[in-house]
């Protein structure tokens, strides 16, 4: 029998706006050339007290602020065992922003030396690690790359995790950052409807993502 899973809460950060569920909860006052400034202003506005944020690359910073807003609204770590919460995220540009940064240290050796603080961010799944560490989440991990958000694959794979009992809750979605363009869409998928109560299907995901 097919079980029903739900998109319970979602957070979207795009074009200087932060959406939680269907409301805009923060807007950039004036457009910054560097989106990193916007991420920092979100961090400060919501008073996330987590100094490690400043060590992260912009991709992880974006994932961090989206996950904080999502998990403040839906306290999944209080509802489920931390071993039963999975994190499944994908993006388009992998870690190319930090890759380019690290490459500079090889190409321009006079002004740069390779740094472990940069190199560690040359893997896209580090952002999954950052969310896991912050929330002490220990369940399944996966990071996928697609040219654009793939609601079909995302919904199918996450439903299979939930239906087989490999996870009771999944923090899922899309976090992309490259060359000043950014897009974050994170949500929780559970067996209970939550605030949004949309069925966890490709169609519903596409509706909420767009």
């Amino acid at each position: 029998m097919e079980e029903t899973n739900y998109i319970s809460v979602f957070c979207k950060i795009r074009e200087g706006k932060v959406n939680l569920n269907h409301s805009i909860i923060y807007t950039e006052e004036q457009k910054e050339a560097d989106p990193g400034m916007f991420f920092k202003s979100v961090y400060k506005h919501f008073q996330f007290n987590y100094p490690k944020f400043y060590k992260m690359d912009k991709l992880s910073q974006l994932a961090f602020i989206a996950s904080e807003l999502l998990l403040k609204d839906n306290k999944v770590t209080e509802k489920y065992n931390k071993e039963d919460i999975a994190i499944v995220i994908s993006n388009r540009s992998s870690s190319l922003e930090s890759d380019t940064e690290h490459q500079k240290t090889i190409s321009d050796t006079e002004n740069n030396i390779p740094s472990p603080a940069v190199f560690v961010y040359t893997l896209p799944n580090i952002l999954v690690g950052e969310i896991a560490i912050r929330n002490l989440i220990k369940g399944e991990n996966s990071f996928f790359i697609f040219d654009k958000f793939d609601a079909q694959f995302t919904s199918t794979y996450i439903n299979s995790l939930l239906n087989s009992g490999k996870a009771n809750c999944v923090i899922a979605g899309w976090v992309d950052y490259y060359e000043g363009n950014y897009d974050a869409f994170l949500y929780t998928a559970e067996r209970t409807p939550g605030v949004i109560g949309a069925e966890h299907t490709a169609e519903q995901l596409n509706n909420l993502y767009k």
Binding site: K82, E83, I87, P116, V120, I126, V128, G129, E130, A132, I133, N135, L136, I137, K138, G139, E140, N141, S142, K166
Partner: peptide
């Protein structure tokens, strides 16, 4: 098969 996270340190 299964995967997990230590939730300990990124590197």
């Amino acid at each position: 098969g299964s995967s997990s996270n230590d939730a300990n340190h990124i590197s």
